[in-house]
Design a protein around this nucleic acid. Structure first.
Lengths: 203, 203
DNA sequence: GAGCTAAACGGACAATTGTCCGTTTTCATT
DNA sequence: AATGAAAACGGACAATTGTCCGTTTAGCTC
């Protein structure tokens, strides 16, 4: 078997890069850190960094990836523990947790998205929409929407497209724009997105 | 009155820049054209270009601006001529036309958005969400949603947030991602967004 | 129309992103 | 352990973005 095993030095560099980037991003903010700075701090060459990550968005996507396991487990636990709740309520729970994630990781997500938009068409680079994290939330939302539609089939829209649209509507830039314009708290935003989905709210 | 009149040479340059940029963008695509190239082609200095437009996104926003009058008139005419139709149908009409606009101007819009995402927080630069075009569609959608909600007030969400969310969900990158993944035609996309809003569809 | 000042100009310069390619290292084979 | 090829390295280089600042010009005042 022609095993495609990652070379040892390469594997070490991968970890080193991610750790270095995370530290620098935490200290100075994602935007303030350059790729050159990351390479220099990690003690590797510019070329080494760029071969592994074709641009900053790519690197950020990998950091999100790292973090996403946490989110996935959180959601899976939540859904398991609240299996008996109506699907409407569970969807609300997923939305709330997704919003918390957006707030925490907005800088990384925005950086990923910025690079998606730059790369015209063909670019082979990974995009947020292909990331396991996006796939995961979309699939969970989609399942719940399907379950909801089964019980009240008032001409429900395609669940995948609905879930996708929700995720787009909650993307950091649009999310914060509304939040600031309306002077909403995070809880108010959560409340409003529930209403947007016509979910029961407690007001 | 301390009239802030734009100097004649400046006004001429503004037009020259927009025309040059539009031409170059049409010929080579927005992404393939650099600011340097625009300045050189227009026969002006780099500094002159950058003082008027702090970055490429800014320039694109102005091009969209130029174009948006056309869209605004189209929508106003449509709404006037179909005043008697139910608000649901009129909203559908606005969505259709907005989708056509997205498809036509996606490159410009994506470039504007890419720069919004880069600029961290404070940057004074104009964003798409502050553009008259965005304001216009959002307001029209919002009005129609309010009208719809009046007749069937099944716990309708905030119309502004709903309109904003719709616009975000239809932003080029997310729009095309769905379109390509599902192999949808433009008409199918229109159809699906109508269903998303729970509007009557003709299937 | 001479003089003045604020605005506008433009090109050099700095910073950042992204690429290229000659050199080094790993590791499978012998 | 020696060998060799694929993979990885790294720093110089090219391209693009964005800034700075000394110079020019429009258009007002006298």
């Amino acid at each position: 078997m022609s095993a495609r095993v990652e070379r040892k030095d390469a594997a070490e560099h991968r970890k080193l890069i991610l750790q270095t980037a995370e530290k620098l991003f935490d200290d100075h903010g994602v935007n303030a850190v350059s790729m050159h700075q990351i390479a220099k701090t990690a003690g590797i060459g510019q070329g080494t960094l760029y071969r592994r990550y074709t641009h900053k968005g790519d690197l950020c996507l990998d950091l999100i990836q790292d973090f996403s396991h946490e989110f996935v487990e959180q959601i899976e636990r939540y859904l398991k523990e609240h299996r008996e709740l109506p699907a409407e309520e569970r969807l609300g729970g997923v939305l709330d947790r997704w919003i918390d994630t957006i707030e925490k990781k907005s800088e990384l997500i925005m950086t990923v998205e910025a690079h998606q938009l730059k790369g015209s068409e063909e670019s082979r680079a990974a995009t947020f929409f292909q990331s396991p994290l996006y796939q995961f939330v979309r699939d969970r939302m989609s399942e719940l929407l399907t379950e909801i539609a089964k019980r009240r089939p008032d001409s429900a829209a395609d669940p995948t497209l609905t879930a996708h649209s929700l995720i787009c509507a909650m993307a950091p830039h649009g999310y914060f724009h509304m939040k600031h314009e309306k002077h909403f708290s995070t809880d108010q935003m959560k409340h409003n997105y529930r209403r947007l989905c016509r979910l029961p709210v407690s007001d």
